[in-house]
């Protein structure tokens, strides 16, 4: 997973515009249609949690790494920075994240 621009810049806040997405769940799996790309994605509970987390309010990369484990209800050790970055990178690459403020 490559992330083009460096998202670590603390002036950059990342969010999710939920009106760009349509979702439909079958059990723990959620199908997400991205209105901007026209692509259908399959998300598990963790990816959906990140979407919900970022749609609450925009956050910087550092805040995401710091606060996402608690949002999930797990210890930071169980959800280390590397995992959070990878998850972020995946959502970024498919165009669901938006740079809200810089």
């Amino acid at each position: 997973m490559t992330v083009s621009a460096n998202p670590n810049n603390d002036h950059w806040l990342w969010g999710v515009y939920t009106n760009h997405m349509v979702t439909h769940s079958f059990g723990d799996t959620t199908f997400v249609y991205n209105r901007q790309s026209g692509t259908t994605h399959i998300f598990n509970l963790v990816s959906m949690a990140m979407i919900e987390f970022l749609s609450e309010k925009p956050r910087s990369m550092n805040e995401i790494i710091r606060d996402f484990p608690a949002y999930m209800g797990v210890d930071a050790a169980e959800c280390p920075a590397g995992v959070v970055r990878r998850l972020f990178g995946e959502l970024d690459e498919i165009g669901l994240l938006e740079l809200v403020q810089s």
């Binding site: 249609y33 209105r35 026209g38 692509t39 259908t40």
Partner: peptide, 11 residues
């Protein structure tokens, strides 16, 4: 053509 039709095909 699923991708071409987009949202109506998803629904």
């Amino acid at each position: 053509n699923y991708q071409v039709i987009g949202e109506p095909a998803f629904h």
